[in-house]
Design a protein around this nucleic acid. Structure first.
Lengths: 194, 194
DNA sequence: GTTTTTGTTGATTGACGAGTCAATAAACTT
DNA sequence: AAGTTTATTGACTCGTCAATCAACAAAAAC
C-alpha cells in the first residue's frame, strides 16, 4: 500500500535512525539492518534510497551540520555586539540538542569516518571553518590582531570538551562545558584589552 | 625452527603493528591478518598470543599510555619549579613521538573503543587522571584555588588539539600546538597572579 | 485499461574475517 | 630416547553483512 512522496520521509527517518544507532552502539559498526529497523523499514529500502551505507553516514553528518548551523544562526540573530555574539556561538555549540550523549557519540565517529572518507573530511572542515569565522567575527573587534590564535584555541577547546564528554558516565554537563569555554574567553580578552 | 622465549618479542611486534595499522587504515576495522602480516607472522599466531583482537587493541593502548607516561616522567625529572614542570608536561604531550599522525589516529580510535569496551574506557580515564594530577601539581603553587578549572580546561584543550591534528593535511605542527597550549596557560596565570 | 512510475520486501549472493584445530617441528627435560 | 613444552602455520568453520534481485502492490499517466 505505497503512498506517494515517501522518499523525503524515508530519508529523514533513516538519517535520524543512523545518528541514534551510531550513538547507541558507539561505533560505525552498525548494520544497515539495524538502522533500517529503527527507521521502520527493510534494509533493502534503505539501500534503495541511499545506495550505500557510506551515503547514509554522510547524509547523517550533513544533517547534524545543518542543525548546528541553524542553531548558531538563530542564536546569532538575537545577539547584539561582539561579546554577546561570542556567547551565542558557545551557547549553541553546547546546546541541549548538540550536547546529547547520542549526538556527541555520533560526532566522534564522524571524526573517525573523516580519516577514510574524503567527503566526510570535507564536511568536518566546513564545520571547523564556520565555527572559526563565527568566532573571529566576534573576536576581531575585541582582540584585533590576536583574534586568530584565540579563535583557534577556542575551537580546539570546544572540540576537546566534546571529546571528554564521551568518557563521562553521568548525564551531560552543559553548564560546566560552557563555563570552561567562557573562562578561556574571558582570560584571553582581559589580556588583550587596553 | 622455533627459538624459545619468543612470546615477548612477538607480543611487542604485534602491539607495534596494531598501532601502525590502525593509524594507517584510520579505523578499528583492521583485520588480525593485516596486523599479523605487518608484524611478520600468521594470524593464527597472533590469536595464540593474544586470544582476541580486542586484547590486541587493549595491549596497544596500554603501550601508548606507558610510552606517554615514561616521557612525562622523564621530562618532569629535569624540570625545576612549577612553571617549568608545566612546560615539561606540555612538551611531552606534544612530543614528536606522541604527536605523529599514526599515533594520533590510533588515539582517536581508542576513544571510540572506549565507548564499547569498559577496559578501554578505564585506560583512557587513567590517562586523564594522570594528566590532570600532573597539571594540578604545577598549577596549585601558581594559581591556588583556581588550579582545578584551569587544569580541566587545559586537559580538554590538549585533547582538542590532538583531535584537530587528525583533520590536518600536512605534517604535524607540534610548534603550533604547544604554542596554543602555552598561550592558554599564560593568560590563565596572568589572571591569577597578584 | 493498460502502461509506467514509485514504493516495498524476502530471499539470495558473495565476500570477508574472527577464532579454532590439527599437524609439524624444534628445543628443553629427565 | 622418550616425553614435554613452546613455536608456528595452513586449512577450515561459522557467522555476519553489504548489496542485489525478482517479485508484488498501488498510484499516476496516457
Amino acid at each position: 500500500m505505497p503512498k506517494l512522496g515517501m522518499e523525503p520521509i524515508r530519508k529523514a527517518a533513516l538519517v535520524k535512525a543512523t545518528i541514534v544507532e551510531i550513538g547507541r552502539v558507539g561505533s560505525l559498526d552498525v548494520t544497515v539492518s539495524q538502522i533500517a529497523k529503527r527507521a521502520g523499514m527493510s534494509s533493502a529500502l534503505a539501500h534503495h534510497y541511499f545506495g550505500s551505507k557510506e551515503e547514509m553516514f554522510l547524509a547523517a553528518m550533513r544533517h547534524i551540520l545543518t542543525l548546528y548551523g541553524a542553531e548558531v544562526r538563530g542564536a546569532l540573530a538575537l545577539a547584539e555586539g561582539p561579546e554577546s555574539r561570542l556567547r551565542a556561538v558557545l551557547a549553541a555549540s553546547f546546546s541541549a540538542a548538540n550536547f546529547r550523549r547520542e549526538a556527541v557519540g555520533a560526532w566522534l565517529n564522524f571524526w573517525v569516518l573523516a580519516q577514510t572518507v574524503p567527503e566526510a573530511k570535507r564536511l568536518l572542515k566546513v564545520y571547523q571553518g564556520r565555527l572559526r569565522s563565527n568566532l573571529l567575527a566576534g573576536l576581531r573587534p575585541l582582540a584585533g590582531d590576536r583574534a586568530e590564535p584565540i579563535a583557534d584555541g577556542l575551537g580546539a577547546l570546544i572540540d576537546g570538551l566534546y571529546l571528554r564528554e564521551v568518557l563521562k558516565s553521568g548525564p551531560p554537563d552543559r553548564e560546566a562545558a560552557i563555563t570552561t569555554a567562557l573562562n578561556y574567553l574571558n582570560s584571553k580578552l582581559e589580556g588583550a584589552r587596553p
